[in-house]
Amino acid sequence: MITETDQTDKVFSALADKSRRKVVEMLHQKDSSILELSESFSMSFQALSKHIKILESAGVVTKRKEGKFVICSLDHEALKKSLQWISYHSNFWNESFNKLDRLIKKERGGKRK
């Protein structure tokens, strides 16, 4: 059974590579065939296919067949869980600092009396 943690680790591991991050950025713009993607990379078609396979196994990229072409698209849902902590931590600190701000203002008010 793949646990949520395993899946998150797989996503981070898949995104640890610069070329794979570039694939994700490109697919974020639009769905593309591997051939289209390969035009933006200096590596071989086979090497790029391997990278896409890793992204696919992490659940970040899905493939579908359209005529002669295999079209890759980004699975935003899979990325969601792994990137959630960015907004989670912004909220974490903002709410903490709101509390700190109130405490400091309260103390300052007390000292002025």
């Binding site: 981070f12 995104l15 640890a16 991050r21 570039k22 994700v24 950025e25 974020h28 713009q29 935003h76 792994s82 990137l83 960015i86 907004s87």
Partner: peptide, 17 residues
Amino acid sequence: VETPDFATRSKAWEYML
């Protein structure tokens, strides 16, 4: 950990968030 460099495309990053 590194995430895709959406930061260089701020509009895309905003959209993503």
